[in-house]
Design a protein around this nucleic acid. Structure first.
Ligand SMILES: [Mn+2]
Ligand SMILES: [Mn+2]
Ligand SMILES: [Mn+2]
Ligand SMILES: [Mn+2]
Lengths: 152, 152
DNA sequence: CCATAAAATTAGCCATGGCTATATCTTGCG
DNA sequence: CGCAAGATATAGCCATGGCTAATTTTATGG
């Protein structure tokens, strides 16, 4: 068991600052990740990703979706011509795939730990973005193990 | 195994929008949570929480910390008088305690799954805010179990 | 084929959370 | 004491990510 109180405070300030910086960094990427994942899903399901559908599924107003799509284009993740649908670049498609896979792993882990599916989906939508490669591997390892030998 | 592609798309749009809304909601609380936790730690360790220390540990400039403290006051989580330290209200202290406890649980879970401590700390700093009560209970249950009967 | 409905974009607003530069207050020391 | 130095606060800037209202483009059905 960790020492309850003093633990956080005796880590060097610079190191703690680094952790918070990482969290902020991740945060600024989270929205992009959710958009490319969703755009990929829409293209798979409907052959195209319309701004209206993106907005509806993200739960934001149309102009908000348009603005974010502009950012995706700026960052090289998507393309679109005015009044046409939105498409993913190679890089966008790659990101979408990795985001989708990580999302599934996070949900699967939560469910494996006994979290109801609905809850798992909700929490995963935020958690996923903060799960590093290293942590993802640990999740996968645990899932593989609990497949082989289910709960004791 | 879940169906790889179509899974996300056949959830009703309103429900998916709700998940994203939840994630945004959580996001807007995350900064407050980290601040009250840190302020609580500083008071425990040094008897007071100075803006300079808060800024240093959060990895932001002093004015940024001042501005966020103003928001904490607005939201009834902290108090402070100009050029004096920052203190937590009852509500702030309660929040700090629950945030600290959840933080520890998340770190412990990651470590229990085999994530190196440093990594666990980093990832937890972002993950923690998205862990609901229900999920937290699942984490605790797992940790209790793996104490009793360690890895097979 | 064109008028109107639907979809998308643009314009312009707000809050948050960063920053730097400047002003003000507190404090400790000579 | 009294005046630097240091700590804090204020002013004012920027980017992101929301919003509504207005405009422009596309698509359709009579
Ligand atoms: Mn997400
Ligand atoms: Mn997701
Ligand atoms: Mn945190
Ligand atoms: Mn924390």
């Amino acid at each position: 068991m960790t020492d309850p109180k003093a633990s956080a405070i005796q880590v060097p300030p610079a190191e703690q600052a680094g952790r918070f910086a990482r969290a902020r960094e991740v945060q600024s990427r989270a929205l992009l990740e959710d958009y490319v994942e969703l755009i990929g899903d829409l293209i798979t399901a409907h052959g195209e990703a319309r701004v209206a559908d993106i907005a509806e599924r993200m739960g934001v107003a149309h102009p908000t979706a348009t603005k974010t799509v502009a950012r995706l284009k700026r960052e090289g993740l998507a393309t679109s011509r005015p009044y046409r649908g939105v498409f993913l670049t190679e890089e966008g498609a790659r990101l979408a795939e990795s985001v989708r896979s990580r999302h599934r792993t996070v949900v699967d882990l939560l469910v494996a730990l006994g979290v109801p599916a609905e809850h798992a989906e909700r929490d995963a939508e935020g958690i996923e973005h903060h799960v590093s490669q290293r942590t993802l591997r640990a999740f996968e390892a645990f899932l593989t193990k609990s497949e082989t030998q289910p709960q004791s």
